[in-house]
């Protein structure tokens, strides 16, 4: 069971949250200017790293706010949480 530190509500069980997938994917401002390749890349291609990854999570059964999580996909450790829109912090420890 992950214990996820919601920036507003504190540490809560994973069952209260929903993972929204990879963070820092910027929605293209003018999709009509993109070719199919670039649009497909935006929609479908993901890094899916083994190790450290940045994700968006929402506290569905709580404050219902979105935030970013830096998590290790091998150890399951949550390294840090940070605001949507902020740059991923360089968490010191692994």
């Amino acid at each position: 069971m992950l214990l996820i530190p919601c920036p507003w509500c504190g540490p809560r069980d994973e069952t209260e949250f929903t993972c929204g997938g990879e963070a820092h994917i910027v929605t293209p401002r003018a999709p009509e200017d993109l070719d199919d390749e670039a649009w497909g890349e935006f929609l479908y291609l993901r890094t899916n790293p083994k190790g450290r990854c940045a994700e968006r999570w929402v506290h569905t059964h709580g404050c219902r706010r979105w935030f970013n999580v830096l998590r290790d996909t091998v150890t399951e450790r949550i390294l840090t949480v940070y605001e949507v829109g902020a740059r991923p912090p360089q968490a010191g420890d692994d």
Partner: peptide, 12 residues
């Protein structure tokens, strides 16, 4: 519901 390489799986 989230990605992982841990080969454990969550209790819920």
């Amino acid at each position: 519901g989230y990605k992982s390489y841990s080969q454990r799986g969550s209790f819920p």
